[in-house]
């Protein structure tokens, strides 16, 4: 393998990896406040992309993306209010089935609105063949967009959780729900807000990646399972580890193409998921003791 090819694979891996990381962070945000794994997480990414594509026919690109993110956040909030808010301590099995049902409904709605066709946003700068020379390799500017937007999302989220009072309230809710309620934090609103937040970042990721990977009504499922792989790999609930795990999975996937046919690529990352679940269910970076206290 030439160094140029190696670098090409590496960049592709980081690009996909950062999207997986964003989906994983979306899982983690909701998991931390509710203890639920939202199986409809991938659908937010698809919705963001699809809405932006439709809005772009009327509005300039930045506005279309902004609006698409807002609408997806609203949908996220609605889902929480309609399906989850009023349930009294539901069992995990029940929550899994409900969120799976929601993901099916969103997917089917997308199928009926946008059809089976593959769509995409235009490239933010230039077009498919525009490239930038970087360390001797050709990189599409969109790749830089994806990587930088994902980094900014991660940066802003960590600032948000650390320094704003809303972020601190959400963390309190994640640490101990009862104690947070006693301190006068409305845990129910925090849950709604966590759905909005993870829908929003998912939608934004869906927009920036749309020119490269294209968007289709069922592109959410694959992303969801890979995002979950990454979340588990990093240790469920740990967003910073998810970034490292996401990039790791992206790179493994990119390099696996040189060994096995492309058609088996998904099977590889899922086999990796199974392996992680069997060997280290608390994640590569998580501690076993902490995982033992959590309720899966």
């Amino acid at each position: 393998m030439t160094s140029q090819l190696f670098f090409q694979y590496l960049v592709a891996g980081i690009t996909y990896g950062s999207i997986y990381a964003i989906v994983a962070i979306g899982f983690n945000i909701i998991y931390n406040t509710t203890g639920i794994i939202n199986f409809a997480q991938g659908e937010f990414v698809m919705l963001g992309g699809m809405l932006a594509i439709s809005l772009h026919s009327m509005l300039p690109l930045p506005l279309a993306i902004g609006l698409a993110v807002l609408i997806t956040m609203l949908i996220g909030a609605l889902i929480e209010i309609i399906f989850i808010r009023w349930l009294k301590s539901p069992s995990i099995l029940r929550m899994i089935i409900i969120t799976i049902g929601i993901s099916i409904l969103i997917r089917e709605a997308a199928l009926h609105v946008w059809g089976e066709g593959v769509r995409s946003l235009p490239y933010f700068n230039g077009n498919e063949i525009t490239t930038i020379q970087l360390w001797g390799t050709n990189i599409s500017p969109q790749v830089l967009w994806v990587i930088s937007v994902c980094s900014i999302i991660v940066l802003l989220l960590s600032i948000f959780f650390k320094y704003t009072s809303l972020g601190q309230e959400m963390r309190a809710c994640a640490a101990n729900r009862l104690a947070a309620t006693l301190c006068g934090i409305s845990t129910k609103n925090m849950v709604t807000f966590s759905f909005m937040l993870s829908a929003g970042i998912g939608a934004l990721a869906g927009c920036v990646v749309s020119p490269i990977t294209y968007t289709q009504y069922d592109s959410g499922t694959g992303l969801a399972i890979k995002g979950f792989t990454v979340a588990v790999l990093g240790g469920l609930g740990n967003s910073m580890a998810a970034v490292a795990a996401g990039i790791l999975l992206g790179i493994i996937e990119a390099f696996s193409v040189s060994v096995v046919p492309l058609a088996f690529q998904d099977a590889i990352s899922i086999a990796l998921l199974l392996l992680i679940l069997f060997i280290r269910p608390h994640g590569l970076f998580g501690s076993k003791e902490a995982a033992g206290l959590k309720d899966f």
Binding site: I37, F39, I92, L93, I96, I225, F228, V232, A263, F264, D266, A267, I270, A271, L273, L274, L277, P281, D295, F296
Partner: peptide, 18 residues
């Protein structure tokens, strides 16, 4: 719980992909 659901889902997807 979630892990079991995802693991069996993953198994199903692998069979489908293969």
């Amino acid at each position: 719980g979630h892990y079991l659901a995802m693991a069996t889902l993953g198994f199903g997807i692998i069979i489908y992909r293969v």
